[in-house]
Design a protein around this nucleic acid. Structure first.
Length: 154
DNA sequence: GCCAACGTTGGC
DNA sequence: GCCAACGTTGGC
């Protein structure tokens, strides 16, 4: 079992919206395709059912962790890539050989906001990819140690 | 809104 | 296969 951190911009999708979704489950992120090979490879190669992920809100006034989610559907082709005219349409992808994938996630629980500023305070977390300068990857692995530690500072 | 950091694209 | 140009991300 692995642990992850997945980013969403509140202007695109919030944890409140996730909470209101049927069964608190959505494809990640509704209306927005993941178009990054590293993130895709993590989903395709390393994610398992039951893996847990932090919901991280980015590009906003208070970036940080706001919840815990579970992976409830393994990687499958992202339908947006086949929709002509859609922002995430990819003419180089085909149903036979889809280029982009997505997973479904289910909200486990909301957390009180753990701000990025706070995460930076702990030497235990200094290796987290989210804390690296210039980090832009929307899905990053979290080690078990980091996961457990963050659960102790809620 | 700024801008550094990064990924992708495409000409050569 | 290199690398400049470009677009995007995201903290501040």
């Amino acid at each position: 079992m692995r642990y992850w951190l997945m980013k969403s911009e509140p202007s695109v999708f919030t944890i409140e919206e996730l909470e209101k979704a049927p069964n608190k489950t959505v494809d990640w992120i509704p209306t927005k395709g993941i178009r990054n090979y590293q993130a895709r490879n993590f989903m395709r190669d390393d994610m398992s059912l039951g893996d847990l992920a932090f919901f991280y809100q980015s590009n906003c006034d208070t970036p940080g962790i706001v919840g815990i989610m579970e992976i409830t559907k393994l990687a499958y082709p992202d339908p947006l890539q086949f929709l002509k005219g859609n922002k995430y349409y990819d003419p180089k992808s085909s149903p036979d050989n889809p280029r982009w994938l997505n997973v479904d996630i289910t909200l486990v629980k909301k957390l009180p906001l753990i701000e990025l500023k706070k995460l930076r305070n702990y030497s235990e977390l200094k290796d987290m990819m989210i804390l690296r300068k210039g980090n832009r990857l929307s899905i990053t692995p979290v080690s078990q140690k980091e996961w457990l530690f963050i659960n102790t500072i809620l």
